[in-house]
Design a protein around this nucleic acid. Structure first.
Lengths: 164, 164
DNA sequence: CCAAATTGCTTGAAGCTTAAAGAAATTCCG
DNA sequence: CGGAATTTCTTTAAGCTTCAAGCAATTTGG
């Protein structure tokens, strides 16, 4: 037998309170951790989170990547990447080289200095993250990984439906 | 019997890969949804996320709150709030009034216009969030709520340990 | 009461971020 | 081939954000 709550007319305002609360909690959680990481990076290494983030992306590949790749990986706009790269080249952490086959394309990579400094920061950064999540059991982490993957897929489905 | 992996010397670099991956997934997930909400707010109502966020905080209380309260609730700096409030007062959405008992304190609240516009946006916003999370079951949502609460507590414990 | 510490907010400098428009190079395709 | 569309990147304007310094009002503790 069908329950009353499942027979409501579609035009009436539905209750989406739980989803909203979940979103707010997700946001709070992320902001909290992001703020903590930001503080520690500044305090310990005098570096900003976006700079650290860009270096982290570039550390994964030895031969560098293009600005567009960086923009996609970091989920920020193109113009944003242009400015960030500029400042990191200026400070000697990054290296830019125009492609031989396509003169629009720039390959960006870490310099020796940039890689060395990043590795030092990354080691410590990893221990911060471990400490921040230390009260979670292995099962908690596994469950969260799975549920967040499902959430990401759901959000991507929703985004695609809007922009086909 | 103890496993080898649990008997490692404390000074050796430990493996915190799973925590790091969890953090990156959490960040990706949040950025994805935040970007989506940002796009829709701009597209549909020509409003920025920080403005919407501030109005959401103020909508919860009829009599308004101080700048400090706003700053804590929104988890952003004091100076940031000053500028945001300025622009929202300018556009007629907010109202500021100096406290009678403490002339440093300003009470901020939504104007009639501000509240009306926010309510309209909030209704639609809630349906977006519901759609974004639509592929999650009730149990998924419950589990996520619980695990994120645990994560938040763990992060707060870690932050407090650093700044006593 | 009064000096010192604290609290609430603002300012200023630097950097981050986006959206939109534009410049330059390449690719597509008739 | 050659114009049109696309791709890659930069620029610009506006706004967001932080940190640190500073100002004014209040509270605290002699």
């Amino acid at each position: 037998m069908m329950l009353d709550s499942e027979t409501k007319a579609v035009e009436l305002p539905e209750d989406h309170g739980t989803e909203l609360r979940l979103w707010l909690r997700l946001l709070t959680c992320t902001n909290l951790i992001e703020g903590e990481v930001r503080s520690r990076l500044r305090e310990r290494f005098d570096v900003t989170l976006p700079r650290f983030d860009m270096m982290a992306q570039l550390d994964k590949v030895p031969d560098g990547m293009t600005l567009s790749d960086l923009s996609k990986r970091m989920m920020v706009s193109n113009g944003n990447v242009t400015g960030l790269v500029e400042r990191l080249v200026e400070s000697g952490h990054l290296d830019r080289r125009t492609s031989d086959t396509d003169r629009r394309v720039q390959f960006i990579r870490l310099t020796k200095l940039g890689r060395a400094e990043f590795r030092k920061m990354a080691t410590e950064h990893e221990t911060w993250i471990a400490d921040i999540f230390a009260d979670l059991s292995h099962k908690d982490i596994r469950d969260l990984m799975r549920l967040l993957a499902k959430t990401k897929a759901s959000a991507q489905r929703s985004a695609k439906a809007r922009t086909p």
